[in-house]
Amino acid sequence: MQFDRFLNKAVSRLSGGSDADDPRPVPRGAPADDLRGSGSWANEWGAAKGAIERAKSLAAGGKAPKRRSGVVAQNIPEGTVRTKPLMTTRDIKLHSWLQDRLEAEAPTCTIHAGVALNAFLVSAEANEEYDPLCNLTVDLLIADDQGQPLVALIHENRVDSHKQLLMLDALLDADMPIIDIQPRPVLSAMWAEIAANLPED
């Protein structure tokens, strides 16, 4: 099963690799627990194992998520998921610059990258089958020390203009200040727009 495969992989990762990968012979008669000292394995893995078991229990009694086509998704085929950069090199530089500026002039505020709209907006139209905010993401979000969103920074989405319009519509409906990230932004002008929406204290 998928969870068993994940559990085995996670245990192998946390313990430094599988037995097959370890060239060192394990002394006969030595308990497996003795390979990790002072119960560290149990402390390190206990929370993750508990989370997996809870998810497994919920999956057994709950409804399987549906794909866009309406076909029930039973699992994720092994080897089909990979990582990708959260930001481009240029966006990383912009993020770092804004973070430094916030630390100097608004230290109670934080900046976040790639934030889903339904993480900081709530739609009255959302229900179990449909959420109009689903799959909509802002490039950067500035929040105060209470987690309250203050400013959304977004790039122009030339690939999917419809999604761009939906996102703008949602942000405007929530009275969320929006700052457009230009291909070559003028940092002083961008900061002036951001500063106008930050707490004065």
Rank of each mutant, 00 (worst) to 15 (best):
S161V: 02
L140Q: 06
D21R: 14
L7T: 15
K9E: 09
P65M: 04
D91G: 08
G79D: 02
G16C: 01
V72Y: 08
R67C: 08
K84R: 08
A60K: 01
A73W: 01
Q2C: 02
S18W: 03
V122C: 09
P199F: 06
R67Q: 13
G50V: 00
A10S: 12
R90A: 13
L14E: 04
L117P: 02
K56G: 01
L7D: 12
R101K: 14
R67N: 12
S15R: 11
L168C: 04
G50C: 02
D145F: 04
A60G: 02
G17Y: 10
V81E: 01
D19S: 09
V71E: 09
P77S: 02
I178P: 06
D22N: 15
D100L: 08
D100G: 08
G114H: 12
V186K: 13
L141R: 05
L172M: 08
Q182A: 12
I76G: 03
V186N: 15
P132C: 04
E200D: 15
N127A: 03
N43R: 15
A143T: 13
D175A: 04
S123F: 05
A20R: 12
L198I: 07
P185R: 06
L86F: 13
R28M: 08
Q2S: 07
S96M: 08
L7N: 13
K9C: 07
E125L: 15
D144V: 00
S188Y: 00
M1G: 09
